Simulated scan of single mutants.
Amino acid sequence: MSFLGTLCILLLATTLAGHFSHRIGIPAVIGEILVGVVLGPAIFNLVHLTNLVQTFSDLGVIVLMFIGGLESNLALLKKYLRPAIGVAVIGVVFPVLIMGGVSHFFNFTWFESLFIGVIFSATSVSISVEVLKEFKALDTKEGATILGAAVADDIIGVILLSIMISMMGDKSGGAQPALWLVLLEQAAFFVGVFLLTRWIAPALMRLSNHLLMAVSPTIMSVIICLAMAWLAETVGLSGAIGAFFAGTAIAQTDYQHQVDVSIEPVGYTIFIPIFFVSVGLNMTFEGFWQSLPFVAVMTVLGVLTKLLGCGLGAKLNGFNAHSNYLVGAGMISRGEMALITAQIGFSAHLLSSNYYSDVILVIILVTMIAPFVLKDAIHRAPATRPSV
């Protein structure tokens, strides 16, 4: 099937799946992920994760996180930075220790077990952003904490992955950059984020308004978004993180609303649905029954380590019980961050091919469960918005 035909089928299927998901009261992203499961290798094997589908999926993550940054309250993010870091640290420690320790009892080596813990320390906030947006809970103290914690979580995960690859030495298939150099590059990236927000983005957006092009401010914002995503990937972070900070920078200018109303239809028309479909396309049930005990135990732990660990981090920072539950639920999803970490580690021989597909299956199952838990947490939390 040609790519255009595949794209047509996927967009039709995700539109219908999202519609019926809303009708039965579940987040639309679940229906879109299930489209990938049903049409992909797991069931009917009609659609595969080709290079073009993967490219559209990668752009979907970037656009979704850019929109999340555009609609985020920077003052709120700053206000809840401290609890976000606390949530992130405990949310990394719990999976590394608990899921890593339990993995050892399934005949993994200690090194492989530790790496599995690192994989599940990652958080994919993109799916949580979509659910929070759907239920109008993104611009809250809990939403700000989840976003901030996910950024810190990503940085910690990259550092842990860099350390593990460095420990592998020559087995990684090539020379790896020194850890101090990786940390220095990432520090330089965040200095760049500050400069972008304070001076660069406002100047570029003002300049774009004088260009003789239709929707030139929107074009300039996309350039900034892609540039930041590229820079983030260059220093070893997720491109989604760069896109998110690009969005927060544009949000501080006078062009925030204009860009938001221009970008959102493009993202939700084509790129973002393909991202959610790609999560389901990664699923396969090959060898499922033999791996069922491992998959079942790790799926439960994948949910609980973030729910309880990040909830504890929120509690230690003075959040109430409803907020603890909401923050913990918002950090459950692993999605593309865990998939990327698993793929990098697999390529670096941190995990054998015998167990790679099982780990991928657990990541996808946890990611599919996460929106249900988050929706329940949102409905239980009081509908309040703090003033800042």
Rank of each mutant, 00 (worst) to 15 (best):
C8M: 14
L10M: 08
T14A: 05
H22N: 10
I26K: 03
A42Q: 11
A42H: 08
L46N: 06
L49Q: 09
Q54M: 14
F56G: 01
F56D: 03
D58V: 08
L59G: 08
L64T: 04
L70N: 01
L70C: 01
L74E: 04
L76C: 07
L77T: 07
R82L: 15
P83A: 09
P83T: 10
A88R: 01
I90T: 09
V92G: 02
G101Q: 09
N107V: 10
E112M: 02
I119M: 05
S121A: 15
L132G: 07
E134W: 03
F135E: 09
E142N: 06
G143L: 06
I155Y: 00
I155E: 00
I155D: 00
S166R: 14
M168V: 09
M168G: 07
D170G: 07
S172D: 10
G174W: 07
A178I: 09
L179E: 12
L183I: 15
V193H: 01
L204F: 14
L204M: 14
M205E: 04
R206K: 15
S208Q: 04
S208I: 05
H210W: 13
L211D: 11
M213G: 10
C225W: 00
I241L: 15
F245E: 04
T248F: 00
T253G: 02
I263Q: 01
E264K: 15
P265H: 10
P265I: 12
V266W: 01
F275P: 00
F276S: 04
S278M: 05
S278V: 07
G287S: 12
Q290E: 13
S291V: 06
L292N: 07
P293L: 11
F294H: 10
V295E: 03
V297Y: 08
G302E: 03
G302Q: 03
N320T: 11
A321G: 06
G328Y: 00
S333C: 12
T341L: 07
T341D: 02
G345E: 13
S347A: 13
S353G: 01
N354L: 14
N354D: 15
M368P: 02
M368L: 15
P371W: 06
A381F: 00
T384Q: 12
T384R: 12
